[in-house]
Design a binder for these strands. Structure first.
Length: 413
DNA sequence: TGAAAGTCAATATC
DNA sequence: GATATTGACTTTCA
């Protein structure tokens, strides 16, 4: 895999982060201890005893793998969890890199993305839920912050040590902070040359791609070719751009929905919802029309965790425009479950760690999601609205077109 | 098999 | 220096 270089980032590659890993390791050790040589945060296998009364299997005692825990987990309020994690990290001056590598087995960029744009639980695959379960467990651990602080200290110490020794050797080890294997100087010249330079799209190119997207979120191979040649890009770049853009727009819209619906969101109390009913999830109709009134019936209560991802691939746009569809009933926060960790305040959306989030939503369709009016909160909101509008127009257009063609094979979906 | 999901890691920005 | 963004890639899934 390409992840080879990042040494310290143990992570994804690390056997620990995968199937075999037991929850015992969650308190951080697993990942970091491998490559960095740092000692695990805690020798305590419990990684954090769960609180009495917590409906979760006890980490450290259960012997459950993280996958098993994910599978058993009730619906979690991803938004509330990330909010809480951000709060704890900020309050304690802990970085995303350390947190990601130690607790989640993810790189800094992934952590940033995850924290900033969490997807709703019901839209996550089992794998995608894993980091949230880890975060939940971390929040539950009364010593989580302490442990991470220790880790930070150890890292610093190790860094200083390396620095000192390198100074005496006469070369820099700055890159070594991240991990032993990632020292640039340690790569052979040949290896460095193998690296592909990163493509950076210019503003005009992005603009053009966005326009193309608004016209056709799922361009045909021919369109892709044309775009690529017009913009002087590789077709794979154009393809990747569309994939990434679709996927990211979806998440953006979800976040916007959260914030728009019910005042949940950054700065607001009440936690959030695992927005439901969006996209191909359960209630969607695949014909491009919103299944109004579709009420989420999977009140999973944590059990039906099957992945209900969309089955109407080509109709994403609906999803986008209705993302978050339903209502976001605030998760039921369980302040008794031990979340009340450092800096916690139960009122806000508390994460009900492993407590069941209300299978919210009842009134789903309320959300149409394109806030038709109302002052835009900021330029970004405006952009999102425009995107949504464009998406809807596109859907309508495609539907009209489809309807006008008798032969389904001619349909452009 | 193609699209979505998930992630990395380079780079940009704060 | 930490965090955010994003092009590319791998894995998962329908």
């Amino acid at each position: 895999t390409p992840k080879t270089s990042a040494s310290c980032s143990p992570a994804p590659e690390s056997p620990l982060s995968s199937t075999e890993e037991s929850v015992n390791g969650l308190a951080g050790d697993p990942l970091a201890s491998q490559s960095s040589g740092l000692k695990p945060l805690s020798e305590d296998p419990s990684g954090g005893e769960s609180q009495p009364g917590t409906p979760l299997p006890l980490p450290g005692h259960s012997g459950l793998s993280i996958q098993e825990m994910v599978a058993m987990s009730p619906e979690l309020d991803t938004y509330a969890i990330t909010k809480k994690v951000k709060e704890v990290l900020t309050d304690n001056n802990l970085g995303q890199r350390l947190f990601g590598e130690t607790i989640l087995g993810l790189t800094q960029g992934s952590v940033s993305d995850l924290l900033a744009r969490p997807k709703p639980w019901h839209k996550l695959s089992l794998k995608g839920r894993e980091p949230f379960v880890r975060m939940q467990l971390w929040l539950q651990d009364p010593h989580s912050v302490e442990k991470l602080m220790d880790m930070k200290r150890l890292e610093k110490k190790a860094y200083m040590k390396r620095r000192l020794s390198s100074l005496s050797d006469g070369h820099s080890v700055d890159a070594g902070l991240v991990g032993p294997d990632y020292v640039q100087g340690s790569q052979s010249p040949g290896q460095q040359q193998l690296k592909k330079p990163r493509v950076v799209l210019g503003p005009e190119e992005k603009e053009a791609l966005k326009k193309a997207y608004q016209q056709k979120p799922y361009p045909s191979p021919k369109t892709i070719e044309e775009l690529a040649s017009q913009l002087n890009l590789k077709t794979s770049t154009v393809i990747n751009w569309f994939h990434n853009y679709r996927s990211r727009i979806r998440r953006e819209l979800f976040i916007e929905e959260i914030q728009a619906a019910g005042g949940v969101g950054p700065g607001s109390e009440g936690g959030s919802p695992s927005l439901r009913g969006s996209k191909s999830g359960e209630g969607d109709s695949c014909d491009g029309t919103e299944s109004e009134g579709t009420v989420e019936t999977r009140q999973g209560l944590g059990i039906g965790l099957e992945d209900h991802r969309g089955s109407c691939k080509d109709h994403d746009m609906e999803a986008e425009s209705e993302a978050g569809g339903s209502n976001n009933s605030p998760a039921q926060l369980d302040c008794t479950s031990g979340l009340a960790g450092p800096g916690s305040s139960c009122g806000q959306g508390g994460l009900g760690l492993f407590s069941l989030t209300e299978a919210s939503s009842s009134s789903s369709a309320s959300s149409t999601n394109i806030p038709a009016s109302g002052p835009a909160r900021n330029p970004r909101d405006n952009n999102l609205r425009k995107k949504k509008a464009a998406n809807l127009n596109n859907i309508i257009h495609r539907l009209e077109k489809a309807a006008s063609k008798e032969d389904p094979s001619e349909w452009e979906f």
